[in-house]
């Protein structure tokens, strides 16, 4: 469903700050895949997401989504098919606007000059009720007054209110406290399962990288160094993963958060 062929991206080419963030990366994602991505800081995980979502255009290579070439498609048009959540819970919502207004924009029903209809209000309220956070009674309050976890849950609802073909989750629970994080994760799994979404997740938790979903990718130096699925993945433990990384890249995983995260 997503076919990435030989993409590369170099930032600040020709300067002392030149950085090859993606180097001849290819990846095929199948329909219904739930892929966890791990890697050291600067491995190119978020850059890969930026390339898929269209935050920048790649220097070379092509990206196909559901048979359509999206390599040069602007970000806001790709957003119709690609939902995305960031680590920063403030990034996905407009703080001065109400919960209802944020959701209505994401839902995008009706013409430009139409207002939020009563029917739509009802629909949005029901959607928010699914989050189980009591937000359905605060539809008119500004999103800026919500907690980080509530905002992230709302962003998740906004990203999936029109089920996208592809959902990109960039450590979207990393900035939340453990209890909220677990709740948002649970919600994510529920929404992904219900809509049978194809999903890519960047995580720093080695354990969940192996237990969550059906495939694990490990990235280093702007490329994918391991792509593990099926039985190989079943039999793998965190220690194996760390050893594999060291063998391949010649260095230990230096993602400090990764090392500090205990198995849950």
């Amino acid at each position: 469903m997503l076919k990435i062929t030989d993409i590369s991206k170099t930032f600040n080419p020709g300067t002392v700050n030149e950085k090859t963030a993606l180097s001849h990366l290819s990846l095929t994602v199948n329909d219904g895949d739930f892929i966890s991505i791990i890697g050291a800081n600067g491995a190119g995980k978020s850059t890969l997401f930026n390339a898929i979502a269209g935050s920048f255009f790649t220097d070379e290579g092509s990206i196909e989504l559901d048979g359509e070439d999206i390599t040069l498609m602007p970000e806001h048009i790709r957003a119709k098919a690609i939902g995305r959540l960031f680590q920063d819970p403030l990034r996905g919502t407009a703080p001065d606007m109400s919960i209802e207004e944020n959701l209505a924009l994401a839902a995008g029903h009706g013409g430009w000059l139409s207002r939020i209809s009563r029917k739509e209000k009802q629909m949005l309220r029901e959607k928010v009720a699914l989050l189980n956070m009591g937000l359905e009674d605060r539809m008119d309050s500004p999103v800026g007054l919500l907690s980080g976890g509530q905002r992230q849950a709302l962003t998740l609802m906004m990203a999936t209110i029109n089920p996208p073909k592809l959902l990109l989750l960039d450590e979207h629970t990393a900035a939340l406290d453990p209890a909220t994080s677990a709740k948002v994760l649970e919600l994510t799994e529920k929404i992904v399962a219900e809509n049978r979404l194809t999903c890519l997740v960047i995580t720093h938790n080695m354990q969940s990288a192996l237990s969550q979903g059906n495939r694990t990718l490990m990235m280093d130096g702007g490329n994918i160094i391991y792509d593990i699925a099926g039985d190989d993945r079943e039999n793998l433990c965190v220690e194996d993963l760390l050893k594999m990384f060291k063998d391949r890249s010649g260095k230990a995983l230096d993602n400090d958060r990764m090392l500090l995260t205990k198995d849950e």
């Binding site: 806001h76 939902g83 407009a94 001065d96 207004e101 924009l105 995008g108 009706g110 430009w112 906004m158």
Partner: peptide
């Protein structure tokens, strides 16, 4: 209060969110 009005308000508030709502800021 129209959709375009909401989109204008969101553009001043968080242009990232506008783009991810498939609207061109």
């Amino acid at each position: 209060k129209t959709k375009i009005g909401l989109a204008i308000r969101a553009t001043g508030n968080n242009p990232d969110m506008v783009r991810s709502s498939s609207i061109n800021p």
